[in-house]
Design a protein around this nucleic acid. Structure first.
Length: 552
RNA sequence: UGCCUGAUGGUGUAACGGUAGCACAACUGUUUUUGGUGCAGUUUGUCUUGGUUCGAAUCCAGGUCGGGCAACCA
């Protein structure tokens, strides 16, 4: 309890509410509409809502805001539950706005009886027109003056399916001249004959967001209802409904949604990427979805850490993607097992190695003292990385080249003697000699080299396929870039490597294990991977100081 | 030219009238059998103009700039 971490503005509100005895304990909710998969922006909201409950000893409901059957599906409900759980959170109650349809209908009746709601026969266009503009007040229509009894019978008839879709709506009677557009007699119910994923065809009228959300919060006795900034103008309406109906006084608070460089957060656009085939699926590892990140190899811990670091405030933001990558690397560095994989191989023959082969050992994770060791087969014929050799080495190049010495990780120091090219002029084979007294762990050679290379014994190597992912978009601020966001899709967001050789240990490793392929990056087995066809997704690269140096 | 919001280094986020701090990014150096990691350090900031005050990022007034609001979406 020594370090006092400062509270964000919502934590401060809650802390005060609790101190004043306004509530004995808090209840938050995470209220997604099941019309798509959750993304990293939702993760921020999830961590906020569940995190608040954890921190202040309260609880959180998972509530599906399913009031628009046209867009919602069970598939999405299932994925949302899986994603929240994967992130490491438990809800105290699983709720659905659709569970409250009958109650909501009764609330609407109450409003009508109080003269606060009326049935309007106008078309959508007429209503829009009559609402005026932000600078000019709206105008009423004759329907606004309908009697309570007429409204009651019409609304009931609406529910009973007596009218066509769109023929009538129920509206709140508030103030057509309000400077807040949301208060210009907002729609409460519309007629929509659409199959609902839970209530089926029981209803043909559905409540609008503004007449479902606050009421659902109140029904569940949510103390702090936290949403994003764009709902600020809705807050007076949120309070209006609760007050007129005399319900539990849930309060709404707003924070700035997450934006990230090189990506988009709009569900509509994300859906477009999937449906138009720019990515393979919602869980394509390039997607900013929770499921995409899971498949890519991000850990729940790293995502929670990220959400913790970005903070909660009311100002608009755009977070560097590199911060997320930092969080992922930081966690993976501690837990990932090291393996050697050569992605772009070139043959290296050790001419004076006459033992045939031997088993060497290498640490699984230098960051973890308990990580243990593994056996790695070594022989006179190896695969090494093509870019670890330079015919004419530059000054600060610490790798292989004619006459240069390097250490082979966990093996011996070698010296490059010569090389051969193929007909096309490409280097094909490197010939080297090794120093038998330079074996890792028992090196008495006294030699000192600057470079250490990863390698794989050719005869023991197993083939693996690597999916190397890069950012999905080529501009930082995709949402605000001119023109169609799809014009900015990075054509090289996926590079499939089919030439890679891996050390045989990978064959026996569990599929859910996280790896660092030495000097290449962190990798995680893809969902399509099999024992006979190993496929790994690159979660994130390692930092590459050498690449940076070369750019200079 | 209505109403609502917001403005602190490149990016985020603290400081609640009393030393502008932290993280990421960038850059140095150092360690290292991963050009990874670790460690040490450097650079960069209170939108503007007034006012209140011994003292203002913080309070007040005006301005500037950004975002949101006129879906039978949420």
């Amino acid at each position: 309890m020594s370090e006092e971490k400062s509270l964000n503005f919502i934590e401060e509100i809650i802390s005060n509410d609790l101190a004043e005895g306004k509530y004995k304990s808090i209840l938050t909710r995470f209220p997604p509409e099941p019309n798509g998969y959750l993304h990293i922006g939702h993760a921020k909201s999830i961590c906020l809502n569940f995190g608040l409950a954890n921190r202040f000893g309260g609880a959180t409901n998972l509530r599906f805001d399913d009031t628009n059957p046209a867009k919602e599906e069970v598939e999405y409900v299932d994925s949302i539950k899986a994603d929240v759980q994967w992130l490491g959170f438990d809800w105290v109650k699983e709720c659905y706005a659709s569970d409250y349809f009958e109650q909501l209908f009764q609330y609407a009746i109450q409003l009508i009886e109080k003269g606060l709601a009326y049935v309007d026969d106008s078309s959508a266009e007429e209503i829009a027109l009559q609402k005026g503009t932000p600078t000019t007040p709206g105008t009423g229509n004759a329907f606004r003056n309908r009697s309570v009894s007429e409204n009651l019978s019409l609304f009931t008839a609406m529910k009973e399916g007596k009218f066509e879709d769109g023929a009538k709506v129920l509206r709140a009677k508030i103030d057509l001249a309000s400077p807040n557009m949301q208060l210009r007699d907002p729609l409460l119910y519309r007629i929509k004959r659409s199959h609902h994923h839970r209530t089926g065809d029981a209803w043909c009228i559905y409540p609008m967001y503004d007449f479902a959300h606050g009421q659902s919060d109140a029904i569940e006795q949510i103390t702090h209802s936290i949403c994003t900034l764009e709902f600020i103008p809705h807050r007076p309406l949120y309070d209006w409904g609760i007050e007129q109906l005399g319900l539990f006084p849930s309060k709404q608070y707003e924070f700035a949604r997450l934006n990230m460089t090189y990506t988009i957060m709009s569900k509509r656009k994300l859906l477009q990427l999937v449906s138009e085939g720019h990515v393979t699926s919602w869980d394509d590892p390039r997607m900013p979805t929770i499921s995409g990140m899971r498949r890519r190899g991000y850990t729940p811990h790293s995502i929670r850490d990220f959400c913790d670091r970005i903070g909660i405030a009311k100002r608009e933001n755009i977070i560097d993607f590199s911060l997320l990558e930092f969080c992922v690397r930081e966690h993976l560095n501690k837990i990932a097992q090291r393996r050697m994989v050569v992605t772009d191989p070139i043959k290296l023959i050790i001419t004076n190695y006459d033992k045939g082969e031997e088993m060497l050992t290498s640490e699984n994770n230098p960051e973890d003292a308990e990580g243990g060791l593994r056996a790695v087969p070594f022989s006179n014929e190896l695969w090494v990385q093509r870019d670890d050799f330079m015919e004419e080495p530059t000054k600060k190049y610490f790798r292989l080249g004619p006459g240069l010495m390097v250490r082979l990780k966990s093996a011996y120091i070698i010296k490059c003697d010569r090389f051969e090219k193929d007909a096309s002029g490409q280097v094909q084979t490197i010939y080297a000699s090794y120093f038998s007294d330079s074996k890792s762990g028992s090196d008495t050679s006294g030699l000192h080299v600057k470079g250490t290379l990863h390698w794989v014994s050719a005869k023991h190597a197993v083939p693996v396929v690597l999916n190397e992912y890069d950012r999905l978009f080529s501009v930082e601020d995709v949402a605000n870039a001119e023109g169609d966001f799809k014009d900015y899709i990075n054509p090289n967001s996926l590079n499939i490597v089919t030439t890679a050789w891996a050390e045989p240990a990978l064959l026996n490793d569990a599929s859910e294990m996280r790896f660092q392929f030495l000097r290449k990056g962190y990798f995680y087995q893809d969902t399509t991977s099999t024992k006979t066809n190993l496929v790994f997704n690159r979660t994130v690269t390692l930092k590459d100081a050498w690449a940076k140096e070369q750019k200079k």
